[in-house]
């Protein structure tokens, strides 16, 4: 490609790119801005674009009323289920790749589980959980998120493990390592990038879940997504609570993504190529 990178073309491109970026960023800014507005500013007409001072009363209300526990609940359920799904899914992927366990059928059956829309199995799962007394519990949500993420983890890790040269494992076994040691000391370190990238997405899926949390939580284990939608009332809508809770719920995502950025970009493109 002939690149004329000098002068006005460069700056024109920059101006367009900046404009597009602002359009995508503005709604996020608006959400954050509302969470820091005073009640008068939230309900000001015409709308105020820049809060006069940082008013943290929306957040203080959430902490005082104990609503922030919803963010904690999301962290616990998404976090533990991610660890479990990664462990179970990676082991399965290793077996499928190295031993061709179940041939193509097993891996296709596993990935097909991911296709089913949550709402379709929501009611049977609800009934199951009622009889097992798991409604409104950590264990219930963690089990569910784990089960729903295992297919994704298996599928993704399959691709990463395929890339590890089998000779490495063979020589490790000649050196007298047991199979478990090969897994722990050769395969896991080699697949590190893939493990991180997959874990980030697994965490995001569990974190963003709304349907299951809506159906399976009542009062004890309410996740943040359910809490946010709960603030939308038919009579009064609590804008400041909605925005503050949303920001608290989005913040962990930003932190995760920012720290894992290099793994994610690779993970996304690889996952797409490998499918």
């Amino acid at each position: 490609m002939n690149r004329r990178d000098t002068g006005w073309r460069l700056w024109l491109r920059f101006a367009i790119a900046l404009g597009v970026t602002l359009i995508f960023a503005f709604p996020v800014y608006w959400l954050v801005a509302i969470s820091f507005k005073s009640p008068e500013e939230v309900y000001a007409y015409p709308p105020v674009w820049f809060p006069q001072q940082l008013d943290v009363s929306s957040y203080l209300t959430l902490f005082r009323d104990g609503d922030v526990v919803a963010v904690w609940n999301s962290l616990i359920t998404a976090g533990i289920s991610t660890v479990l799904a990664m462990l179970v899914g990676t082991l399965a992927a290793y077996s499928i790749v190295r031993f061709r366990t179940g041939g193509d059928h097993l891996s296709i059956w596993i990935i097909s589980q991911r296709m089913i829309p949550p709402i379709c199995v929501a009611f049977p799962i609800f009934l199951l959980y009622v009889s097992w007394n798991l409604v409104d519990s950590y264990v219930g949500l963690i089990m569910l998120y784990t089960a729903f993420n295992i297919p994704y983890v298996t599928w993704m890790m399959r691709g990463y493990i395929q890339d590890i040269p089998i000779e490495l494992e063979q020589s490790a076994m000649i050196d007298g390592l047991t199979r478990w040691q090969v897994l722990r000391k050769v395969v896991m370190p080699m697949a590190r990038g893939g493990l991180f990238a997959t874990a980030v997405f697994t965490f995001i899926f569990a974190w963003n879940d709304f349907i299951f949390a809506l159906i399976l939580s009542k009062s004890e284990v309410v996740t943040y997504t359910v809490k946010v939608t709960g603030y939308f009332g038919s009579q009064s809508t609590f804008w400041s609570k909605i925005s503050a809770m949303s920001v608290l719920g989005v913040l962990p995502m930003f932190v995760v993504v920012a720290t894992m950025q290099k793994f994610i970009v690779r993970g996304v493109s690889m996952g797409a190529v490998k499918g």
């Binding site: 597009v20 970026t21 995508f24 960023a25 709604p27 996020v28 608006w30 959400l31 995001i204 974190w207 963003n208 709304f210 997504t225 946010v228 939608t229 939308f232 909605i242 925005s243 949303s246 719920g249 989005v250 995502m253 930003f254 993504v257």
Partner: peptide
Amino acid sequence: IILLPTIISPIVAGAT
């Protein structure tokens, strides 16, 4: 910055 919308929960996108 452009990737921000994709990271946030659909619930929050709706609320926003």
